[in-house]
């Protein structure tokens, strides 16, 4: 004869097992529901950001009329051609040695094509160059006082003094600003201003969007060129002027 106790225990364990199973199913269902919700929320947010970026008024990424990703309204022009037919845009990093090597070449070309070719300079500081961003800030801070070109020259001419050092070069850059006779209070303020850094990052973001991978990267009338020598560079510009 089976004890009733035994039967009750068996029944109870069966009920418990069923209950546990239904709880497991409930948890599984909830897990999937929450997962789906999280993913859907993420997709919605990304979608919204894309839409706002596309149609939103004055989105930071939007390209305004009269400017392009290559040449923005606020991009620094070293010199401007009267007819605006040929434009050379350089994405540069003040600490990059190759940029320093191209600097005299660009100076020579600027002299040769004064008034005929527009030269535009865009910042593209590379993360692995310790002082590149500082240098760009120092130049941008000078640009706020209308001395972009002077500081730009100074950076390349003295690149060996501060480049590749991996120690903050703020003091050296301060010295350059002083030597140029800048309003030092204004320069200091601009040098530390997050807006200055934003301005530099905006240039770099345009560069990235245009496929700039290293510096210097030159664009001749919107086409990326890789001149290996002064003569090659000159030939490319002559072709653009003739075309």
């Amino acid at each position: 004869m089976e004890s009733s106790e035994e039967r009750t225990a068996a029944r109870r364990s069966k009920v418990d097992a069923l209950r546990a199973e239904s709880r497991r199913q409930e948890v599984r269902r909830r897990n999937l529901a929450i997962t789906a919700t999280v993913v859907a929320a993420f997709v919605l947010v990304v979608g919204a950001v894309f839409v706002i970026g596309k149609v939103g008024p004055g989105g930071g990424e939007a390209v305004a009329a009269g400017e392009s990703r290559l040449v923005r309204a606020d991009s620094h022009r070293l010199q401007t051609a009267a007819d605006g037919k040929v434009t050379v845009v350089e994405f540069l990093d003040f600490e990059c040695e190759a940029c320093g090597a191209y600097f005299p070449m660009v100076e020579q070309l600027r002299a040769r094509y004064a008034g005929k070719v527009t030269f535009v300079t865009r910042y593209f500081p590379i993360a692995s160059h310790f002082n590149a961003e500082r240098a760009a800030r120092a130049v941008e801070a000078a640009a706020r006082q209308g001395r972009f070109e002077a500081m730009y020259r100074r950076m390349f001419e003295s690149q060996k003094e501060w480049g590749e050092k991996r120690i903050p070069a703020d003091e050296i850059f301060r010295g350059y600003a002083k030597a140029l006779g800048l309003d030092m209070a204004a320069w200091e303020k601009a040098y530390a201003d997050p807006a200055t850094l934003d301005r530099i990052r905006k240039d770099a973001a345009d560069g990235e969007a245009l496929g700039v991978q290293g510096t210097p990267t030159f664009f001749l009338n919107g086409k990326k060129i890789q001149p290996q020598s002064y003569d090659e560079f000159k030939a490319a510009i002559d072709a653009a002027l003739a075309g």
């Binding site: 897990n31 929450i34 894309f50 990235e208 969007a209």
Partner: peptide
């Protein structure tokens, strides 16, 4: 809630990638 954690983990990495290279994706 194993897959919730996994989803958040993946979305965090995807989000970081999206933000980091935003100018390019856009």
């Amino acid at each position: 809630y194993h897959s919730v954690v996994l989803a958040v983990w993946f979305l965090a990495v995807i989000g970081l990638i999206g933000v980091r290279f935003w100018p390019y994706w856009s």
